[in-house]
Write a protein that binds this DNA or RNA. Structure first.
Lengths: 334, 334
DNA sequence: AGAGGCGACTAATACGTATTAGCGTCTTGA
DNA sequence: TCAAGACGCTAATACGTATTAGTCGCCTCT
């Protein structure tokens, strides 16, 4: 009784059960396309069970069938040593949804390395049935190749590149930002400053759009570094500004800068000045970015694309507003 | 100029370059086993470049070559919503080492679900060249199948199951624990209590072994719940106990229980009582479990197994001692 | 001039599965 | 009694690559 130094395959089952490999495939595939006698079916299933048969996922995938494997391309490390990983909820959502839909995940490495390695990793992407991309970069050439070849992929976060052909699941920053401004206006604020992060991104544009849509008169300031001079805040207050709206991002640079300056100026929030963040730390006035939900939706959309059932390949999710304690009516109206 | 709705393959290159598919494979494979005229070689490479050829990872893998894909089976979720994920460093180490060795990772889902789903996930493991297992469970039957079939796998954490045939990378709890006890004895402690966690595990046995090896007279107490009565601590002190050694685990149950009781008893640490944890929270006296290193080593060992170069399939890593502030000389000897 | 060798390839096959066309055989109805 | 259909299954092929055993022509050596 020597131990087989190889996993059993369909051909082994076929030989023992006295049928063809095709018969085994048909029975184990569970499809109804080919008729099989119940007795044969049971015999095949029994032999398969005896041998402890496990379909070879790679062969399955090659044979034009799905392998239930979703790629996850992160453009950075998926398990950062950095404790405070703001994007963690997204991955958490991806994993949860994938699990509930019976999909495994391939984590591509080398995604945070030099360009050549990044590109190589993008190629490997095809190992999966489809792939999720998560990060602000869009290496156009390799991604275009994938899209052109009809390879299913979904970006997490809105992506206007490639002539708008990239499927994505993002957050509706425009609507959410507008809503925040509307709330401020509803409270009586008339003079509002919007403080942007130093660098650009599609999501950054969206927020600005929302802000100007709801309050076209808002003056916009762009930070050019990690700090905001205290004098700037003081002068705004002197100008009659009653509320600051701050762009929120992964790093939280702008919020920290503003908060620091406001505190240093000895101002009380929200009594002296209201403060709202457009997608900031949890609990702070403004709105919340539905990270986990984005992950979940992205998985669902990807599977729709894989199964050719996608109806809306570009989706924006609603961001729940956060009341918080940093926003109140302006002092002058009290 | 219609867009090819398919990625180019070797056959396409072959047709254009006027050679056989095999020639393309040989040239692109870069092997020296088959001679090719330099001119042909260059022609093939050029056509491949023109078409933007990318080898199909799945086909590559099926054709007996490696896919540079390592499985990661966690027996729990890899991206837990729970913020404080004690095992995160392990995954971080795995990812980093995999990246530096050009390996991608497959995360199997459903590993924390019901047994049937777990087992199904274990089967899917074969998608990868080999697989890392991480968790205290060892579902013997499916794992035995993999081992018997010669499928490369490595457990993270010592595993005595299956007659010791499971390759692993663990921490040397025996030596590390013994060392902690020796340090206490060196400080003058003579009466020491060892407090164990409520439940069992190989690592738990190892710690106990180390404790008794260095200090055979140590009295061992096993917690039977998440709390330790304050009276117990008081009575130990009355008995002349000068140091407590606590089993450290992922949950940290024992340490929290002991610490709570000691504080409640109004005792000063380490003046009234020294406290050491065998692999506990960072910074606390005792030793540190080299999580990240375990992850890295496991990846290296797995690749050795895959490439048939493994020399030591079962490895225990050294745990760096932590001085901390919870251990000092016993009061009586001062 | 024939044996031998070598350079440059190709044909064939394997990897393990899914799919589809089609082939006997048996039943059924007119 | 014969055609039509149902039934139960198989042969063949595709998927895209790697590998190995050749094949063919030409050169060299004795």
């Amino acid at each position: 009784m020597t131990t087989e130094r190889r996993m059993p395959r369909q051909a082994d089952i076929a030989r023992i059960a006295g049928v063809s490999q095709a018969a085994v495939s048909v029975v184990l595939g569970g499809k109804q396309t080919v008729r099989m006698a119940e007795s044969t079916r049971l015999r095949i299933l029994e032999v398969a069970e005896d041998l402890g048969y496990v379909p070879h996922p790679v062969a399955k995938r090659l044979a034009h069938s799905r392998s239930n494997l979703l790629g996850l391309y992160t453009f950075r490390t998926a398990f950062p040593t950095n404790e405070a990983d703001i994007y963690h909820p997204i991955l958490s959502g991806v994993e949860a949804e994938a699990a509930s839909l019976g999909q495994d995940l391939i984590l591509f490495t080398g995604t945070s390395g030099p360009e050549a390695r990044q590109e190589a990793a993008i190629r490997r992407t095809r190992m999966a049935d489809g792939c999720l991309f998560f990060g602000r970069e869009v290496p156009e050439a390799p991604v275009a190749r994938l899209v052109d070849a009809g390879f299913p992929l979904v970006y997490i976060g809105r992506r206007p590149e490639l002539g708008g052909r990239i499927p994505y699941v993002g957050a509706d920053y425009v609507a959410a930002s507008a809503e925040v401004l509307e709330r401020l206006i509803g409270l009586g604020h008339r003079k509002i400053r919007y403080v942007r992060e130093p660098d650009e991104a599609p999501s950054s544009e969206d927020r600005l759009l929302g802000v100007l849509q709801a309050a076209p008169d808002t003056e916009v300031v762009r930070l050019d570094g990690p700090a905001l001079p205290v004098d700037a805040v003081r002068s705004w207050l002197a100008d009659g500004v009653t509320a600051l709206v701050v762009e929120g991002t992964d790093t939280g640079t702008a919020y920290r800068a503003v908060r620091t300056a406001v505190d240093a100026a000895g101002l009380a929030v929200p009594d002296d000045l209201s403060l709202a963040v457009l997608g900031g730390p949890p609990g702070v006035s403004g709105f919340e970015v539905p990270m986990q939900e984005m992950g979940r939706h992205a998985v669902r959309l990807l599977i729709e694309l894989i199964t050719d059932q996608a109806t809306t390949p570009q989706q924006l999710l609603w961001c729940p507003p956060v009341a918080g304690r940093e926003v109140g009516p302006p002092r002058s109206t009290e």
